[in-house]
């Protein structure tokens, strides 16, 4: 564990806490893409298949349980909670996210570390996480102004993988034979997808104005 990876994990945890805070305090999921949340639930379930078979550390196990349970709880809230579900922007959240699932599944079958069920699922989850934010970014562009908590949620979610890139660079220089091309390339693509959001988020912060993404 290094400071970059710990900062990344904490930033990721903060993004989830901000989203839970928004849904719990406002009892609303307006501006939140259910499709992105479903993709994240798939990402965590397919990535943490080793939750019960390989024990890395208490921290690792606890964080995996937190990520899986929070992503499933958020999907349940938006789909089933009698108050929250009413504010879901169903007509705006129309990204065909199952196409992303299909494309990542094909890519994982072709490019993986080892051809085993667990490794292919792991590669699939890495690829899917890189594109999972797309439905959310599309929804933000369509829904015009973005409420503060939703903007902060997306900001921390994008920032966490940037810390992971620093972690991979650090590990590359500090450990022999450390190469994780699948994670690195996918992580760079993932962070790049946030580039325009980060730009408009910075502008809104600098001008102290509402976050507006151009349609």
């Amino acid at each position: 564990m290094n400071v970059f990876r710990f900062a990344g994990d904490m930033t990721h945890l903060i993004s989830i806490l901000v989203l839970l805070l928004k849904i719990y305090t406002t009892k609303s999921c307006s501006g939140i893409s259910l499709k992105t949340q479903e993709l994240y639930a798939v990402v965590f379930v397919t990535r943490y298949l080793d939750l019960v078979t390989d024990f890395i550390s208490v921290y690792n196990t606890v964080m995996k349980v937190v990520f899986i349970s929070s992503s499933l709880a958020i999907v349940w809230c938006i789909r089933r909670h009698k108050v929250v579900r009413r504010s879901y922007d169903k007509e705006l959240d129309t990204f065909r996210h199952w196409l992303l699932v299909g494309a990542c599944a094909v890519l994982a079958l072709v490019v993986h570390e080892k051809f085993s069920f667990q490794e292919v699922c792991w590669a699939f989850s890495i690829y899917l996480e890189a594109v999972a934010i797309l439905p959310q970014l599309v929804l933000l562009q369509r829904s015009g102004n973005v409420d503060n908590l939703t903007g902060q949620y997306v900001f921390f979610l994008g920032a966490y993988r940037a810390f992971y890139i620093l972690n991979w660079i650090y590990r590359y220089y500090s450990e022999q034979h450390f190469t994780r091309w699948i994670s690195c390339v996918s992580g760079i693509v993932q962070t790049a997808l946030y580039a325009d959001f980060f730009y408009y988020y910075f502008i809104s912060w600098k001008n102290n104005s509402k976050l507006q993404l151009p349609a």
Partner: peptide, 10 residues
Amino acid sequence: SSAAYIKDEL
């Protein structure tokens, strides 16, 4: 195929 590395990252 090469042994896949331990997935110690989240």
